[in-house]
Design a protein around this nucleic acid. Structure first.
Lengths: 222, 222, 222, 222
DNA sequence: AATGAATGAGTCTTCATTCAT
DNA sequence: GATGAATGAAGACTCATTCAT
């Protein structure tokens, strides 16, 4: 039923088989949701199993332990993110101004608005208990992301669009508010009526705009 | 008060007594540290007890449960934060430009550089398991902080120093990178060699500077 | 039977069929090996299945449970042992001296040197969890074996070859070292470099020799 | 109540404390019994706890895992055995003949007739699952025991009491029947009415006697 | 007030067994 | 008959909490 088979075979492939192939994905999705909602420690394997509509034991057919399940969840969702990151940039024709807006908005759509946004909370919460992750995350996510934005800033500076700002710090100043939006969404934002912002897309647009033009009135500043 | 003062004070009251009065504070400090380091679930009451150099049972003389201990830790540290918030502003004579820099730097010194910076990680991580806090935190910390910065922005706009930017979103764009700095410090930053920034004060200065002047080359500026 | 014979035999019956008939035997062999190696509890049905190159489910087509599999393994291997026991004795022409040596060596070749030697460890280990076997084993193995050796001793005494030693205890003194050799082989001997003896056949020869002539220097002997 | 305190203090030492000191021993005794009875795998920590009249968790206050509990049980009971082994020999004045009888009987009294006799079954059963034990057991028990008996045989040979038999094999021929007696006692012997021997001490006496004098009629053998 | 031995509820994890294919 | 995905009962182990001292 999932992928429609061409024509001839009227769905003869065993349902069991199709299930087996879909299971890891189903389990990872369920796990992401429960992990993000409750945190690693408070997540019971049975919770994940139930959400994926399988029994406790079945989870262990695909992931050897709760820890490995978490790792898989993070790896799975991060790999996507990274891949998507590189896609967009590189051959953008227009102004760096436009590129920055586009990049931010795309990131928000593909990460911030999906369940993947919960990963950051997980990372914040669990890195210290999974030291191997610190390394992994630093190498696979932080560093590539940083390089991406540095390249973008350098492009702007080279083209005379941007001031010669300190690269690393500016990269963080750019990305941090967007990460906080994700964190807020899965913590305070999920509980109290408090919303960090009425309209995240508008927030991001404004953030990028501020980063580009600043608060000060243009003429005769300072 | 902890280290015994030389002679003057008629320090006849038994060390035990002084100890007893200091206990709750000592326990809260120890708990903050362990909670921040390991997360709520991974924190053993014994860890806290050991760090405070008391026995497991003693913790229960002061806090009825692990949950209450966490609540006390958060409440205790939040009160500090709140108190510190209001102090500085209101009657600042100089430019809003200067005020913003001063405010940011002061906050960093009093929060970011102290153990209190760990409280944000705790909140992010645990609000969903202690929903009562969401409300409390929103009302006691987020809202006052937001008002403070909004007032500051309005001051700048009124004085013709700032553009008429959207207030709420700009407030968040201002504060979020600084919160992320705190979170980073207690998560990724505590594990991998990765540092968000070489020099947090410089980062903050740069961040505020960016918020004020933006990335774009503005003819005649600077 | 497993490897297909060339041409002659009208081997039209499907390989499947031949397989099917060999299965129980193959499974019992695999099970004996794994049970002896790991013990009953540590043996996974999957291990047995894998060793017999079938799937987990297949084992259950032949044996209804792990317990029944163990019972079958013991029963199967015991029957062999018993049958082999009676064969040799009865009409031996020579001296009881020679007969004892011959009997011991034959037993070692047919039991000690084969997989059957592992059955003793299984019995020792598991009888208390399968009490029904105690009876079975006592009646079918211990008692016949005991009778055999008692008859042998009586033959020796009657012929004036042996002293009038206590029959039962001597029977045990004769057989116990050989059983220990089997047990050792499948326990300590299988792990550490420790070997009970460099040369089991020489050990047995020496053991029988000791049983016949003793340690003491007997003037005029040998 | 256990050790009577001298005079003055009328049992003021806290019962709790005394308990703590007695616990490991109590637990080891309980564990030995249950392990021997059911085997390692079939033993539940709760069984051990119940037999020692404590809760599940208490066992873990003293032994970090079931495996370590087994190791401790074996180590504890073996150390005694070894120590006792060395005690007896060395300065025996009489004939090697007498010494051998005495040694065998003492061993039987101190090991064979106590719960410690169950250890051998445990070892046989579990060495392959605890490879580290093979080494330990070989070094701490097998080797010292072997040396002890070799020394005894050499003494007999040197004094002209014994024939020049092969040492290693003879050592095993001496000890194996006694080990089998222990194994039998805790396996078949504990289930069926079957007894290896009516009177173990008589069996051992006979065994040693056979080892010394053999089956053959003294004069004009072969 | 302080201690730390003891408890036992709660989870992860394993694996014998089942059954749809 | 054969398969192997799925199940869920069972047991090791942890740790918040209690309470006798």
């Amino acid at each position: 039923m999932p992928t429609s088979t061409p024509v001839a075979t009227p769905d003869t492939e065993p349902a069991r088989k199709r299930r087996k192939e879909a299971r890891p994905q189903e389990l990872l999705d369920a796990a992401l949701q429960v992990f993000v909602e409750k945190g690693f420690a408070a997540t019971k394997m049975e919770d994940v199993a139930n959400l994926a509509s399988v029994s406790k034991g079945t989870v262990y057919l695909y992931f050897p332990s709760k820890e490995e399940l978490l790792k898989a969840v993070i790896r799975h969702n991060l790999s996507l993110t990274i891949a998507q990151g590189g896609d967009l940039v590189a051959q953008f024709p227009g102004s760096t101004h436009e590129l920055l807006h586009l990049l931010a908005m795309t990131w928000w759509e593909r990460v911030g608005e999906t369940q993947a946004s919960g990963i950051f909370k997980l990372i914040i919460t669990e890195v210290r208990n999974f030291p191997e992750f610190a390394e992994f995350y630093a190498a696979e996510v932080i560093e590539p992301g940083r390089q991406l934005l540095k390249a973008l800033l350098q492009r702007g500076i080279a083209r005379g669009e941007f001031r010669a700002v300190p690269l690393d710090d500016t990269v963080h100043a750019l990305i941090f508010p967007m990460l906080m939006l994700c964190l807020h969404k899965h913590s305070v934002g999920a509980c109290s009526g408090d919303v960090a912002t009425q309209d995240p897309r508008a927030f991001i647009h404004n953030h990028i705009d501020l980063m580009l033009h600043g608060l000060c009135c243009q003429p005769g500043q300072h």
